[in-house]
């Protein structure tokens, strides 16, 4: 009996209130802790994700790099629209991204950026599109969501610090902050039950955490590594 019920409940069309919605195509994020709380165990491959960043420099982009590398490995392009700063090629290459598949788009007006974002989301060759936009227009967001679904593209909408906005049509909404030296991901919205507790992720495995030193001690902290030519 119990097995029959379990088989029935495993049907993809059925999901229960205390669970997350099944997501047929998800892009593994590369972080087991995050995958565990995302519907389908990964970034939604054909939908919009809204990312609210408390402030820059907490590892918000590094959070997405494993997934982007996966998109590129699947021979699809990644498009970054109107990033807030110059993306730094050596660091991106060192992180394992295929730079031949990463396109950066600069836009003169927010309208141009919106148009470019929609085009990228619709394009079959584009697997992931990130945009740094300030729009809160519900109709615009719904349009982007439809474009992402049609183009089967992971669309990430980055909110600058303080641009929290109100309700959104994006099916996934995450708030990123730093907590105890780690990246805390709080799921504000997902298809499924609420998750009040943030997920703490350690991104910094490659970066040693040194003891706290003042600025005067900086010079003597370690013998300098020298790049001189």
């Amino acid at each position: 009996m119990a097995t029959a019920l379990a088989a029935l409940l495993a049907h993809p069309a059925i999901w229960r209130g205390n669970d997350v919605a099944p997501e047929p195509s998800a892009l593994p994020s590369g972080f087991a802790g995050l995958d565990a709380v995302l519907p389908g165990h990964g970034w939604p491959q054909a939908a919009l994700t809204e990312l609210l960043v408390e402030r820059e420099g907490i590892g918000e982009i590094r959070l997405t790099l494993p997934a982007l590398a996966r998109v590129m490995a699947a021979r699809r392009d990644v498009v970054w629209i109107a990033p807030p700063h110059q993306p730094y090629a050596p660091a991106l290459a060192a992180a394992g991204l295929d730079l031949a598949r990463l396109y950066v788009v600069t836009c003169k007006t927010p309208q141009e950026a919106l148009w470019a974002f929609e085009q990228a989301l619709r394009a079959p060759e584009c697997g992931a599109a990130f945009a740094w936009l300030a729009t809160h227009d519900e109709r615009v967001l719904r349009r982007l969501q439809v474009a992402a679904r049609d183009g089967r593209t992971w669309g990430a909408l980055w909110r600058r610090p303080g641009q929290r906005g109100s309700a959104t049509t994006a099916p996934l909404r995450l708030a990123l902050a730093r907590q105890d030296g780690r990246l805390a991901v709080r799921v504000l919205k997902r298809r499924g039950v609420d998750l009040p507790q943030p997920v703490l992720l350690a991104l910094e495995a490659d970066m040693p955490s040194l003891p706290v030193v003042g600025r005067e001690a900086a010079a003597s902290a370690r013998p300098p590594r020298i790049a001189r030519s």
Binding site: E56, I61, R62, P83, P84, H85, Q86, P87, Y88, P90, A91, L92, A94, A95, M207, P208, S209, L210, V212, V213, G214, R215, A217, A218, A219, A221, R222, P224, R225, I226, A227, R228
Partner: peptide, 29 residues
Amino acid sequence: RPLWLLTEPQPLRELFAHKPWIIRDGPER
């Protein structure tokens, strides 16, 4: 290496004078 590079280095001056920053790695000359 950082993922974002500022197009123009930004002077830290006052920001730096009073509160200590926490050095995690360096220096690299």
